[in-house]
Design a binder for these strands. Structure first.
Lengths: 194, 194
DNA sequence: TGCAGCATGTAATTTGTTACATGATTAA
DNA sequence: TTAATCATGTAACAAATTACATGCTGCA
């Protein structure tokens, strides 16, 4: 096999794009909308990753595209998955050790709550709660996850998002008082105890 | 200010290292252990990010270090935070829009459950459950999060990890049946309906 | 008049991961 | 003797984000 370097067998932006195309042809712009809505909260991607991903997939024969002219609007490149692409997708899907990674500035900041004052902590938490509420509202509005005709995976994942966001909210509300409690700032004390 | 490019005001590996040093001097190796245990699950970092981060911090006067010779063991570079570093840390800590990002191959794969067979799904989920259980056991073993003497932030964050992992587990167990249900694979149907 | 939406892409930059490189000690 | 722990670092690579670049239409 003569790929550009080594061909991936993991779930990256390329593989997700491939997967989206099993639902029918779409343009990069369409996929971006999908990443913004349903996919975005657990697998974010912007134009800067989608367009190069599509270009690579096309170079390797995983997808085909058709230039669709539109009146008054820019042309669209409408991509379709090929047989080869389908096989590649299946390889990406069989991944028993699929990761689930979190990178949270929010928690990293809160870890050092004893160095901050209550107002700073409260503001950050309040904003996070607003963010969560917006997300919960958003997730209920997507028909491609919530209707009975939606694929089982989409329903499962949307439900997961709802559940985890709800629990995120609940934990914060039930425990935020702990963070603004008075606590002696004892820099270096714990280290000295070693 | 004449930084190397533009100095960060976000919570990155550098800022976290700075924060860890408020608890007392430490080496890169020490910090790695901290990233592996308490920090790792919400803010992962390896040697490849820690050592360069420390080098940059030292170049910019945010930390100082002392070479500590040891008998039989390699030398340690023991870092301490400076006054300048403390100020920089506070800037990183005041970040009302701190992010909380998830990147989940696991959910991305499951989104396409209708393209997979039940065994593949089951194996992936079973492994994930084992992973979660291992994490839950791990998090209960760290005294720097669970004892009363631990800073409030650490206790809050550890509790968060415990809560979310528990809920992760619960959702999966309660809903996994949905994923292996029979479902007609209707590729392109939903697209055609548009 | 100005902004939002449609639509594509490249280039620069940032950031992190993985592999490489070294080398002594200690316990199994 | 083999692996693990201690301990630091660089270089190559992969990946994603951000900014840049273009340009028309329709609405307020």
């Amino acid at each position: 096999m003569a790929g550009p370097s080594r061909w991936n067998e993991i779930m990256d932006v390329k593989t997700v794009c491939l997967g989206m195309l099993t639902d029918g042809p779409a343009s990069g712009y369409d996929m971006k909308k999908c990443f913004e809505s349903s996919f975005g909260h657990f697998f974010p991607a912007g134009y800067g990753s989608i367009y190069p991903a599509l270009a690579t997939l096309a170079r390797n024969g995983m997808v085909e595209f058709e230039n669709v002219l539109q009146s008054g609007k820019p042309d669209r490149k409408v991509y379709s998955i090929t047989e080869k692409g389908r096989k590649e997708l299946m390889k990406g899907l069989i991944n028993p050790n699929a990761t689930h990674r979190i990178r949270s500035e929010f928690l990293a900041v809160l870890w050092f709550a004893h160095l901050m004052n209550a107002e700073q902590i409260d503001e950050m938490i309040d904003r996070k709660l607003v963010e969560i509420d917006a997300f919960l509202q958003l997730i209920d509005e997507f028909p491609d996850c919530n209707s009975d005709s939606a694929p089982k995976g989409a329903r499962f994942v949307a439900g997961f998002g709802r559940h985890m966001a709800t629990q995120f909210r609940e934990y914060i509300e039930n425990n935020r008082a702990l963070l603004v409690e008075d606590e002696t700032i004892e820099t270096g004390q714990r280290a000295a105890a070693r």
